[in-house]
Design a protein around this nucleic acid. Structure first.
Lengths: 212, 212, 212, 212
DNA sequence: TATGAATGAGAGTTCATTCAT
DNA sequence: TATGAATGAACTCTCATTCAT
């Protein structure tokens, strides 16, 4: 009675497959970069055969794009949600956003994505564009919005918001970079919290001593 | 009949070749990343045959390291020189340094190196370490020194200099990133001068509005 | 329309492939030596693509070692079996062994292995050592054992068995050499049987005329 | 007065060059085999530039042939000389020849040549043929002549001289082989003198015990 | 449908040979 | 004439992709 025997060996979790593949691929791509990533290894990590990959993704480049897309999309919604919680002062709002983002970077493996995008932008212009449109632009809208609101309300000085938003964001990117590039070189490790505090301190109050 | 045999098929240029090869390789590596760069293409760009590369560099990895090393070494001395010109106030000193660095990034092709290092750090730990030791650490000494001097002289607030130096540097890195990753995505281009002004403005005076 | 798509372009033969590859490689290595053997050619001879070789053997050197190992191992057991058939006089035993070995050399393609090992010993010390340990030493034990037994039983003169075994073996090696090096040069060909008879005749009774 | 200055830097010893090159090449070819020998290395060993090689030998194959030829020719005359000293008994003559040859093998670097020829015979049929004609055939004439003379004079048994000569020679070849292939594997080394004694002992008197 | 053996284009690398100097 | 930089064909090896099973 062959029919009686339960689930056929494959199809086990055909539904979860894409997710598992994306996770495995994300890890490998972040670890080694696009070119140095072996599909063989991705498949092994996901617990499937190399051939099966091609059932879900047309080829390596498509897999890569899917990885980036899916990783970003997961994050975008949360960021947006955060942004709409705009009660309170602009100062607090900005701090809240930067804090939330820093937490995320320090904790999640997803922070590998920005690094990946930067590294492969030359070979994948569409990825760069996608990231720019979906991440950078949204971040810009968010930050610049906060800045303009703050200026309008008299909480912030009248800064050049068209460019200032990048300066605001820069230490976040540096944090990502540090985590993925120089962590191994720092003997004492890197304290994200302290970095955040330093960032907020300088950003809000500047370096200059105030005369009494 | 001198005209008969026109110019020779190739020339012996043992002295200049290494430099030419490094330049060609730098351009290709920055454009495509390590793995996607074809030695064939590097050679063609330098105007030699693929085999000639191997007279000067043992293999692809060595060529890569040589590219990074030579590009960095050229820059380090100047940075150091700049640092020793320490007359004047700390505020001016800091501004001078950031300005000089921004100019360099915006003008020279060498700014591709940091991006390259970040992208390949995972596959070339020694390169990451080298960059960290020779560039990052020097920059840290420089910046942190200026900060501490400024604090000591009462020109700056008493900030956490152990971490603040990274915040100071972050917009420079973002500038590099922008140039090499997102320039093509920005319809209006990127104005390094304005970015610098914004950076200095925020860094020195902060966001917060001062009460009268 | 079954005729439309004729036989498949290739077949999966994971079980037989290694053997087929070894055979093809053996032939090529013997014919040309290690360095002059092209993997391309080995693959073609085995009826597979170049890339397939690498599924079964890590690289050329490993393929070479596998060839030598597998060729030897096949033979060793038989030799051993032969040796244990030690009934009868020592004279007959020695003759039986030399005869069996000569037959094998004259008939099998495996006799190319010793020649190969000799030729490549300089570049593959491990192969030389492997051959020495697995073949030469066994042969020595076998022959020297027969000699000592013969001496003990009064069948042989009291010869220097520590060195004599090599003299006993020498004409076998010469036979191998002849087959693989000078066969084409001998207009009348080479008669292994006659060589063997000559060998046994001289070995057992020597050259010297006996006085009545 | 530029003419006054003594010998121009090259031409130093243009006459000796070929000899020096042959020596260097012999050493390299014996050490590594034909294919693995680098002309670069040969040139360096001879103290000239790679390009200069081509002034004396058309290409690698020609150099190889010249090496073999010159190495052999040096030896042949001596062997011939030895052969003509045919006073005394056949037994002594044979012993004298084998002794002389063994000495030569154990001492000179030229014994690498036979090994080289055997190894490369497949790729250089002309070399094999040359060696066969110039060395093997002469050796055969020599040995077979001694054997026939001995038989005719009643000093030797009536052996099959057409094949016996090879059996006589075999231990010499084995000696060469041992020196160049298995020397490193023998912990106690290899005593050529003892090998020779064993050879002569067995060859002349055989293994068989004589009944009283 | 899942597998992984088989493919084959293309990469890095080597080196005999040539030729500008 | 001697040199060694430059060449380029040819090789080993890799791996994304296909397809027989």
């Amino acid at each position: 009675m062959p029919e009686l025997s339960a689930q056929p060996r494959w199809q086990r979790r055909a539904v979860d497959r894409p997710q598992e593949l994306l996770q495995a691929a994300l890890a490998e791509f972040v670890e080694r970069g696009y070119a140095a990533t072996r599909l063989d290894q991705v498949a092994r990590r996901a617990g499937v055969s190399k051939g099966s990959l091609y059932r879900y993704y047309q080829n390596k480049a498509e897999l890569f794009k899917a990885v980036v897309r899916s990783a970003l999309i997961a994050n975008l919604d949360e960021a947006e949600a955060l942004a709409s919680a705009h009660s309170g002062g602009s100062r607090e709002l900005l701090a809240a956003f930067l804090t939330a983002f820093t937490r995320r970077v320090s904790e999640s493996a997803l922070s590998g994505i920005p690094k990946l995008v930067m590294a492969e932008a030359g070979n994948f212009p569409e990825i760069a564009r996608f990231y720019f449109d979906e991440v950078i632009q949204r971040a810009r809208n968010l930050i610049q919005g906060i800045l303009e609101r703050g200026v309008a309300r008299g909480e912030f000085r009248n800064v050049d918001t068209d460019y200032a938003w990048r300066v605001v964001i820069a230490p976040l990117m540096l944090g990502i970079l540090w985590k993925h590039t120089f962590l191994a070189c720092e003997p004492g490790g890197f304290d994200f919290e302290r970095h955040l505090r330093s960032h907020l301190d300088l950003l809000l109050d500047g370096l200059a001593a105030r005369e009494a």
